[in-house]
Amino acid sequence: MKLFIVRKVLEANAKIADEIRRKMICSDTLLINIMSSPGSGKTALLETLIPRLQKRGVRVGVIEGDITSTRDAERLQPLNIPISQINTEPFGGDCHLGTEVILPALEPFDLEKTDIIFIENVGNLVCPAEFDTGAALNVVLISVTEGEDKPLKYPLMFRVCQHALISKIDLLSVLDFDVEFLKTNILKINPKIKISEISSKTGKGIDEFIDKLIRFSGKDDIAKSKC
């Protein structure tokens, strides 16, 4: 006997993602999912980005998905912001963050007093692209020490993101890296994606990215008084 059911395999994840989106809209919090290969500079970006957001009065939180250690969370400790560490496993864990771990990770935050929460996803360009986190904005980092053809190898990642950050551009002078070719490849996959060039080391491009985040949030200023 054959039962035809035609149900989405990840619908359980999608359902919680919708719940997270509703939660974020109600509390006026912008949830941003940051994804990349290992070593593209997700943590370094947060280290540079967050103090600049704080200077503008933006209240930030981080969900840290460094599943094999608490190192990334420790690097962010000096910023004195709430950090929710997704549970760790010393010899490696899952390859992505599903909503079943993100929803409980949101618990420690006072959402009414938080303007932006960054999810630092697991370093991986395949699996995280597949799992909706409930974030309003998906951002992918690709560093200039990677290949220009990477978007063509991981098309789903570049399709699901609204913003691509080309990182470590301070290294361009010592590399034979063709930024324009990378941009062409990113746009082949997703003609609508916004692209920025950044260096977390020198700070180049970071303020411009913040301006884009503020425009995305639909307000002149992300920081706002709540209740």
């Binding site: 006997m1 035809f4 059911i5 035609v6 989405k8 399709r159 996959i189 003609p191």
Partner: peptide, 30 residues
Amino acid sequence: PEFSCQHCSGTEIEMLSGSEMFVESIEIDE
């Protein structure tokens, strides 16, 4: 992995299928 129209090379394209996963059917013992 190049998202442009095969006919006019336009890049404003909408994906109709190819990015979703389904369980289509299940066969059980009679």
